[in-house]
Design a protein around this nucleic acid. Structure first.
Lengths: 192, 192
DNA sequence: ATTATCTTTGTTAGTGTTCACTAACCAGTG
DNA sequence: CACTGGTTAGTGAACACTAACAAAGATAAT
């Protein structure tokens, strides 16, 4: 789908966004970092917007395995734990992602990008909600709590953890703190 | 502290950020919206950065009452509920804030602004953590859960709720959904 | 096998636009 | 007559993007 050069451009763009923020992402910077000229970049992407779209697509592709793994668990609590830990594992392996993803706000005014991001968000939200509801039916998860609240708690705390990790300069172990958070969430929502 | 004109500039800036994103916030736009010329704006703020700093200061000032109200409650669960609901009440009254606050990422590369925002975040984080820990000591809150996890769950789910509200175009009732979320969190963390 | 042409991917040198900010000036008020 | 808060007209820098050209490899014609 993406040529080697295109892949290189996307990865460089992600790195630059993580380093200097999306406002400082310029075609010139990307080209310089790769070591080619500005117009050469336009041989591979028609516009800057195309590059940003590719950044999001790239993220989607890399995140997919986290959702695939869920199918291996039967118990809904295991699925939720897996949802949290697998996501964090991928972000830990691609630390530059952290700063890119959680800047939906940065894509304000670029209709296409917002839509692409929103759909991604909603999709994993839906998947998690389905898991929670089926867990409640099977009496594995407390049923006296609104399933939407549980979803918000899980995703919200996950996102905050990643934000804190990213803003702190990644000084703590994301996966270890994630395990602690996940364990605590399990204790809270498990049906007695 | 701020003159009337300065206040007007700050409020216009917030409105424009909410509408069009921070990348589209230009001195020209602010001036046009107010109905004065661009250089006139520089009579009131020395630079664009000064305006952005004032935006954050303004936010701090408006949010303060949410922390004041906490002191009225004795019970730690009441304090937490109040923490959530008072914050949401203020955001509901100043909907433009929602899009501004949760774009810490937008301030990347402006050292001063990141610092200002981070300190704000850390401060309310600390306040909440103190409340949770004292609640655990007084046996009002479950003690088998890491207090840091509880703080992350509360703030994380709150932030996600606000983000969803803002991204949805404010189609749902923030305070009502907030009450539901708050009630559910209470049920989860209360000591039996 | 040699030559001609096309395609790909790069180059240098620009374009017009937009931005934050400034110089110089001016009208009203105390 | 100075201060405050406004004006018009501009500055240089940065940006996304383009025009025109060049070198090398693949493809095809002779």
């Amino acid at each position: 789908m993406f040529s080697e050069r295109q892949q290189q451009i996307v990865e460089t763009a992600i790195k630059l966004i993580a380093d200097k923020g999306i406002q400082n992402l310029t075609i010139k910077n990307i080209a310089f970092e790769i070591g080619i000229s500005e117009p050469a970049l336009y041989r591979h992407f028609g516009s800057k917007l195309e590059i940003l779209k590719a950044v999001i697509t790239n993220f989607q592709i890399k995140m997919k395995p986290a959702l695939e793994k869920l199918k291996e668990s039967v118990n809904s609590l295991n699925k939720i734990e897996s949802f949290i830990l697998e996501h964090l594992k991928i972000i830990n392996l691609n630390p530059d992602f952290a700063k890119v993803i959680f800047s939906e706000a940065n894509f304000q005014n670029e209709e296409d990008l917002i839509l692409k991001m929103n759909n991604m968000m909603k999709q994993s939200h839906k998947i998690l909600e389905t898991i929670v509801q089926s867990g409640q039916k099977k009496d594995e998860i407390r049923s006296d709590i609104n399933s939407l609240s549980i979803v918000r708690i899980i995703i919200g705390s996950m996102r905050l953890l990643v934000t804190q990790w990213s803003m702190s300069g990644m000084i703590f172990n994301l996966e270890a703190e994630g395990k602690q958070l996940s364990d605590d969430i399990m204790k809270l929502i498990i049906a007695e």
